[in-house]
Design a binder for these strands. Structure first.
Lengths: 333, 333
DNA sequence: CTGAAAGCGCTTACAG
DNA sequence: CTGAAAGCGCTTACAG
């Protein structure tokens, strides 16, 4: 890298344009406030000097960081990626930047990341994991940052929650399977609060409607393709052979499907499969996968929308924003 | 949110601990410089006040942002995700935060994002896309920011590049296929500079070794599963039926595989398949996919390592850091 | 090991 | 519509 030349600062631009720094600042932040001729001179001075404003200084003076922190467990869980992507896109329209934090599968690094976000005076913190640590909850509450919890609808959100009911997802799947005449579901679930809520919703509904207690298997957290394959092999040895496998993710469902194909087991005739998430692959697999579609991008947009409403001074009364979900019936069940 | 109480600032902590702000600052940044007894009093004062330092102010005073910008085309291209994840993990160890920017598939938003990063006085900018705009290249060069281009090794990097040779990947695949006795490759490529470099490497090597000009198909940018399926169907109608399909991504390869399975075409006996990227799925599909493994996480770590070396005052002489790649021969070819 | 003081580069009432 | 000036909350030579 070449030596760093002294960077032009606002005063340099001002001198060149024959105005004060205050006017340059106004030109940059509230252009409507400066006369057209003045504006043009400043515009040119900015161009000629290659001036790039220092937003650390600006933020300190205005106490606006224009920084939003987005905290997700990891990036492999591509189910959150659409949400992050939509958020980043929307926020950059507003001139915000997003700080990406990875809290880890167990959310262990969440308190440290929240503290980092608060140090930067983030305008908002958007969470996808569950924050259990009460001290950190209190810290955020006392600071007046906007906190948006996504992908779930906790009873008592820290601030605002944007998501859907995982219980309701489980219930809907149970309804659907009954209506199709399935009688012996087998549950394949990843560990994790949300998957567990869906599972519970399913089981409660299934039993309440007179179904037998379903057989089940669960996996430590990360649900990858391979688990679905292994699980399918064990399935064949159960006393009661299931007629449908309810998977907590499309990854698992895909694993089951591939293994079934390889074993010559017909889906859905011999065993049906239901996934969750509606990943791109769900519509492309053969057979196509029956699953639950979540509009992840919409979650991101609604989250940003909350920020905008609050920035506009609006009082947010609805602390739960339900984006719902759709069961998509395809070939696999 | 509750009303925002006035936040405790460094002076409040100092007063409580009976020291000056300077000492509190030293305690926070260079703890070795303060006496043990003093340190303990400050530690307690920090705890009691719930003080969280303001890093915008700190950054302005010290002209260190501890902010690194990571710019990727989008998040669907999960091939970069391992790199981002590793980078974020490593950087947070150093107390840096990462600003995530999405440049768009055509990298159209890259200049705006770079300018946003410079406004925040980012310590470094890490790119995965290709930056064509010369004005922006110059801007970064003149600013003395560390710029790391990843996932490729351009002849003239802006600053430092961490990646591998896409040409060499294409050549290796050609070698491999010849050694296995394949004679009629068909190329399935996504548009995009890197895929094109691999394609060219393959074709050059193939022709140089006396092979026939391969047939090929290409897709506009995003290569998803579905393209592979559609392509496979068209394949069967070619004059010269290929004996191996060389795909520019595992997504495409997977699509080909699934469609072949559905059509009852045996892989690799009737047609072989090679992918690129070694996504999780490559090892899990049936048959498993022969592909090129890139250690994406290592790219992220090496990038951070460059930052650390430079932070330590080291002069970086090797502007190309080659992380290499591995061809993994599995069942599909 | 610690403090007083200047300074980082902006923004924003206040006054005109 | 514009300017002079105070202030945002830290860091860091400098001096002791």
């Amino acid at each position: 890298m070449s030596e760093r030349l002294p960077l032009p600062k606002m005063g340099d631009v001002a001198a060149r344009a024959g105005v004060s720094s205050a006017t340059v600042s106004r030109f940059l932040n509230t252009p409507g406030m400066v006369a057209a001729a003045t504006a043009e001179r400043i515009r040119r001075a900015v161009e000629e000097t290659g001036y790039v404003p220092d937003l650390m200084a600006g933020g300190l003076a205005s106490s606006k960081s224009r920084l939003v922190a987005a905290l997700v467990p990891d990036m492999a869980q591509s189910i959150f990626n659409a949400t992050i992507e939509a958020m980043v896109d929307e926020l950059s329209i507003d001139g915000h930047i997003v700080m990406l934090g990875l809290t880890g599968i167990d959310n262990g690094r969440m308190p440290a990341l929240i503290s980092a976000a608060l140090s930067r005076r983030a305008d908002a913190i958007i969470l996808t994991g569950i924050l259990s640590d009460p001290a950190t909850r209190d810290l955020m509450r006392s600071r007046g940052v906007t906190v948006i919890e996504t992908w779930g609808l906790p009873d008592d959100p820290i601030d605002v929650a944007v998501g859907f009911s995982h219980r309701a997802v489980g219930q809907d799947i149970a309804h659907f399977l009954r209506s199709r005449g399935y009688a012996r579901p087998h549950l394949l679930s990843a560990a994790g609060t949300r998957a567990m809520e869906r599972r519970q919703g399913f089981v409660d509904d299934w039993l309440a409607s007179g179904g037998e207690q379903p057989s089940e298997q669960s996996f430590p957290s990360q649900t990858r393709f391979g688990n679905g394959r292994a699980a399918f092999r064990q399935l064949r040895e159960l006393d009661v052979v299931p007629d449908v496998v309810v998977c907590s993710s499309d990854w698992l469902a895909q694993g089951v499907l591939v293994e079934a194909m390889a074993a010559g087991v017909k889906v859905p005739d011999e065993v049906a499969v239901v996934g969750f998430g509606n990943l791109a692959i769900a519509a492309e697999m053969r057979p196509t996968i029956t699953t639950i579609d979540i509009d992840g991008a919409r979650i991101g947009r609604e989250a940003v929308n909350v920020l905008r409403r609050r920035a506009a001074g609006e009082k947010i009364l609805d602390r739960h924003i339900d984006v719902g979900f759709r069961l998509i019936a395809r070939e696999s069940a």
